[in-house]
Write a protein that binds this DNA or RNA. Sequence first.
DNA 1: TCTGGGGTCCTAGGACCC
DNA 2: TCTGGGGTCCTAGGACCC
Length: 358
Amino acid sequence: MPRIILHVDMDAFFASVEQREHPEWKGLPVVVGADPKLGKGRGVVATASYEARKFGIHSAMPISRAYKLCTTAIFTRPNFPLYLSASGAVMDILRKFSGKVEQVSIDEAYLDISNKASDMNEAAKFAAAIKNEILEKEQLTCSIGAASNKLVAKTASDFRKPDGLTVVEPGNEKAFLAPLPVRKLLGVGPKTEMVLEELEINTIGELAGVPVDLLIQQFGKMGLYLHEAANGIDESDLEETYEAKSINRNLTFEHDTRDNTLVLQVIEEMSRDACELLQEDKSTCRTVGIKVRFEDFETHTKEKTLAEPTNDPTTVQNTTKGLMQPFFADKRKIRLVGIRLAHLQPQDNRQKRVQEYI
DNA sequence: TCTGGGGTCCTAGGACCC
DNA sequence: TCTGGGGTCCTAGGACCC
């Protein structure tokens, strides 16, 4: 029996939540992201409402460009606590519909409804019911894809947006993907798209026809994935639990700087903040790293693995500050600094051990 | 057009060990 | 003396996703 997987993707999530909270913004172009500062702002668009997208504005676009495309749009800063609470409410609804849910991000989730629907007809009704409840309870729309695996369900949810519902019958996975551009395949970004274009591979269907050994030769491990994905194959199961593998904090300065004291101060605050997070989770890190981006956008990282795991702010601060030193010799101004904690491990293993003994 | 922030995974070279 | 091979860890960088 094929599985039945849904992929639920909220439409223009941040912007939609803002429009819900500010009814006077409904029907207007809303851009959530950095402050445009009359076109001089630094940063990017997080989410643009569908009205704003009509002007050509989209996620990850420099905010200065978005401003030029639509001066009169409503530009607003992200309100993450608000989005997190809306997200939590949506996820609660999804969990009522299925016991098997994988939350992928703040606004996306997979549901395995193999036990709730016997065919795609029933799956479509199930998905429609989910959309209804999210709309009624949260006044938000989403797009849903239904298919026999995660990859195709995800591609399907993106097929008709916003407020879409796309069902791919088992057996039709390959045919559904075939006409789409390769860029629509999860894992194919700008770089891979360019390489494929050189090879005159433009659609997923064309990619599906390329011999797998050729793809492995060209892309390594990624080549095997590309072959299977393009053929609509994805056996992966939902991952219902999540453990963070790293903690990152980054800051792009308002103005590029040579003020080392300022840089160190920021690093100190980030280190403290990240350690607080570790301590809340009763966990530790063993690898401590920094990131520096210069004014010309050249970016470097440095990291160090410690002999002992730690969540002590002073230890982390001393390590990050030490890693920064060589970069202060550089003549260029610094645009961004960041820290990263990795090799995370729970400090308190008692529960795990008990489970092992049982 | 001048490029955020929080993440994951992969690659590749070198150190080190057996 | 002119040079193996496998495994693991560490480090730096990069592609990609939301």
